[in-house]
Every structure is written in structure tokens, then in C-alpha cells.
Amino acid sequence: MSTPDMPLAELLRHLGEMAQAALPLWDAVPEGATARLFNVAENATYLVEGAGGFRAVLRIHRENYHSRRAIECELAWLEALGASGVVTTPGFYPGRNGDPIQTGRAEGLDAPRHMVLFHFVEGTAPDERGDLTPGFEELGAIAARCHAHVLHWEKPARFERLTWDAEAVFGPRATWGDWRDAPEVTGEIREVLERVEQRVRARLDAFGRPPDRFNLIHADMRLANLLVDEGGTRLIDFDDCGWGWFLYDFAAAISFIEDDPRIPAIKAAWVRGYRSVRDLSPGEEAEIDTFVMLRRMALLAWIGSHIEAPEPRKLAPGFAATTARLGRAWLDRLGEEAQGPSETRPSRPLRASGERHR
């Protein structure tokens, strides 16, 4: 999320000043409230706390990532999902001028930033240390309900969101940059990943993009974005929602844990939950691992282009090597199964060998 030529610490200082100065833009925020940074990735996100137990979440958007119209479309889908009962989503506060999207400025930053103030969502994310199958079965069902919804939802005019396809990951103007620029992508690692890119592109071309496979998706539907309490389950963080393959939502769900030995059971649980709501053909199920590799390559590029932020910096050591190991295993399986099309020959699940790495 860094502004060119500005160290992250300096950028966050300016954004922190912007966040605090912006609070009076919303009637709902009590006088004297404070904004405290609690996450930085694509955007800077702040917990806003004030008198009477008031809490809200302020998102300051990354510069040049989403247009104002794109953010309006995100909020429209949030409202539509909640109104239709598909899944509970976070509400958001209108500003004093009635607009949910406000503009923030700070001395030291040339460009203004878009801002949205979301309702604080109670609940905790499922524990990722234990048995993940119940959480992923629910995640699969939620994904299927969202996918069924978008097939019938009349989207607003001039609907604008990012696209998560092969060009967005591998093209000359890739959304998160070139994976080749990520740390530790050298020698044999790059050679393997070049082959992975070619094979992913070919399989996605063959898979096709009909609207019942490629449509509006959440694109970051991880357990960390599910909040659960006695009141039910809520889905948050739609910042990456956009056009993509429905199966990409599973790949995004296992971001950063693709080599976890629990993945076969996790995938089976997600598919089981999905099929409890919406059909998933054997051929589609067989292609899930292609989307896992697409997402993993996207994450490798993301680490390289966001290396100043704490999470990518922490993830970087060994990430490229593990991506190549996963890719080599995937290519080997495809070689063994090259005699039949994916629509009739389900592939074996993605498995990791040896010690787990990021």
C-alpha cells in the first residue's frame, strides 16, 4: 500500500493523522473519539472508539487501488447480500453529507484518500489451530449462497470492480505486480514457476468463463474474514471482491496455508458445504487445484509488491521455494493424468510433502 518513495513508517504517520482528523465527518462518531491502527495491507484500517462504548472500523483506501465508483459497487453488493439474507455483512455509516464514501487529506500526502466507516462487527474468527473442517464446510455453503445470489442480482449500472483472472495475475499490468520480482525467485524456482504459469493459463482457457463459473466473487473468503458469535456468522472485508471464477473463492480461503497437511480434509469439507447449496460438477471439483496455484502465484506477487508492510515481510522467507514445491507436485500430478479431460477424470487433491512452510 506504500506511496512511491515514501517509507511505510512515514506513510502510516500521515495516514494516522488523516484518520484522526476525519472522524468529525461522521455524525455517528462521538466527540473525542480516537482512531487506532490495527491492520495495514492493501488499506490502512483503524479501530475507532468513543464515549458510550462506541466502536467502528475506519478503512482508508490505498491510493490508486479502487476508484470511487468501484467502492460504491462494493457497498452495493454488501447491502444486497445483507438485505436478501444470503449472509450477514457489516453495515456502514453515511457521512454528515449523506455519502458513505468520504475524502481524507493529510499534510505530507499529495493525493486525497477514499474512506469508509463500517459498523463494528462482534464475534471472533474460527480458531485455525484445530479442526478446520466445520468452519470450511460453513465457508463452502456461504460461498455457494453468494455465488447463487450474483447470478440473479441485477447489478448497478456501470458496475466496476477488479478482475481476478490470468491477466490480473500474470499479465504485463498484473494487479499485484510480477511474481518474478518477489523475494527469492531465482534459478530453479523461477524455472518451475514459469512452467506453472503456462499450465495454469492453458487450463483456465480450457475451463472457460461462462457466467455460472465466472462472475462476482468475494475473492478473500478466508476464515479470518468470518466472525462468529451467539448471534450467528458474519462475512467481512469485501475490499477485493470482483470478477473471477467461483472456485477462486476456495483458493483464497486457503491463502498462505496451501501446504498444510489438513488441506485435503479442508477441501472436502468446503466442497461438501458448497454442494449443500449449489451444484458443483466433478469436472469443476477436479479443477480446484488449478485455482489454488493461480492464487498462490498471485500471493507471491503480492509479497513482492508489498514487501514494506509487516505481513508480507514476515511471509517472504521460503514462500517462493514452497510455491515452487507445490507447483512441481501439481505439474507432476497433471502429467500422470494427462490421458483424460478434467470433466471426466477428477484430479487427486493438492497435498504437501515434508515439513510445512508458508
Rank of each mutant, 00 (worst) to 15 (best):
L280T: 02
R278G: 01
N225I: 08
T290Q: 07
H114A: 14
R13V: 12
M293R: 09
F159S: 11
R234T: 14
D229L: 06
I236L: 02
R358E: 10
R96Y: 04
R295L: 13
E154N: 04
N39M: 03
T34Q: 14
Y248F: 15
H147G: 04
L247Y: 05
R358Q: 09
G98A: 09
V48T: 06
P310T: 06
L23W: 02
A168M: 04
S342P: 06
V121L: 09
D127E: 15
L15Q: 14
R209W: 06
L299Q: 07
L11R: 10
F250L: 14
L58D: 01
R325W: 00
G130E: 13
V121F: 07
D229T: 04
F170T: 00
D99C: 02
E184V: 01
G123R: 11
E230A: 15
E128R: 12
A144L: 03
L8G: 08
F120W: 14
W77E: 09
L58K: 03
Y93W: 15
R36N: 03
D229S: 07
R325Y: 00
L75V: 08
F256L: 14
R161H: 02
A56P: 01
A56V: 03
P211L: 02
G354M: 06
T34C: 10
G104N: 05
A51K: 10
C241H: 11
E137F: 01
E285F: 15
T89M: 03
L204C: 02
M293H: 08
E308P: 11
F246I: 03
P126W: 05
R161P: 05
Q339T: 13
R161G: 02
T88L: 13
E311R: 12
W270K: 00
S347W: 04
C146T: 15
P349L: 02
R68F: 14
T186M: 05
E63T: 10
F136P: 06
R262T: 02
L326H: 01
R296Y: 05
E107Y: 00
P156R: 13
L117S: 04
P349Q: 01
A21E: 13
R222S: 07
D239V: 11
T45P: 00
R203E: 14
W270T: 07
R262Q: 10
L11G: 07
G52D: 01
G304F: 01
G130K: 09
K155N: 03
R59Q: 03
G171L: 00
